[in-house]
Amino acid sequence: MAVGTQYIAEQPKLRTSSKVLGAIAIAALLAAPFFFYPVLLMSILCFALFACAFNLLIGYVGLLSFGHAAFFGGAAYFTAHAAKVWGWEPLAAILLGVAGAAVMGLLMGFLAIRRQGIYFAMITLALSQMFAFICLQVPFTHGEDGIQGVPRGYLLGILDLNEPLTMYYVTLAIFLFGFFIIWRIVNSPFGNILKAIRENERRAVSLGYRVDRYKLGAFVMSAALAGLAGGTKAIVFQFATLTDVNWQMSGEVILMTLLGGIGTLIGPVVGASLVIALQKYFAAWNFPVTVLIGIIFVICVLLFRRGIVGEILELMKRRQKGAA
């Protein structure tokens, strides 16, 4: 009996060192808008959440989606339309974007999870390109112009989001909420089944799991969280355009996740911060920023394949082993 209680008391595990680091990170994020340009920070937060959502799929289920822009950009359109044309309250508009992305995730995932590896990637790419084409054609997205001048409005009718600081803290809250959800998923029994599927799908099936359902579940969650990022971005930047649904955006999120470290919780956050910060700071240069990011990417793949955070974690693990 004593054994059992001990066993239950052990989960969920969160070491003191992670708690301290987490508290420092949150404090830094709270103080950040007094030192950096809030719009840049909000951009980073939106893309970091997008990359975390993407990482849920590649890092914990081993599925490389090449169509996540559809969820990100799709949600941005839904949110923008609801806020601007229907005059919805911003949070409700964002939730509509999340719901829309989840439904799209269900449809796309249903078709895509039947295949693995490159075929899975190609199906997601094809479906997202179809969606991008629809976005170009249907009237509500306004084609090349996109939906512009989306009002930020009043959150729950109270908080004025036109105040940069208020907008920043709301974005931060949404990011932390999304990140917390991902942390919970990864550390839940459901997350363990996902990891088992990533490692050996056959084995998971022969233990009695219908893995397709779990993959689809993870796909929908990932899509919904990408939608949360996209919807928030539409409110923050007050527009939704074709850029967000195009395949380059799907590529960008892969790049961010790879740079930061696949399968680590904060890797995508680091990767997104790096890419967005570089894009902003080098936008004024004559040197094309895509070339610079390309060079960084090549160096990263050649020298530290686990990504920035992945390599740091590996180094710490080896140190620990050496000390023990």
């Binding site: 088992a196 490692e199 022969s206 009695g208």
Partner: peptide, 22 residues
Amino acid sequence: LHKVAQAGIGYVPEERGIFASL
């Protein structure tokens, strides 16, 4: 396949099939 395990047959393969990430 997944229904066979659910029917009540447990399989311990030669390679044991322990999940390394767990």
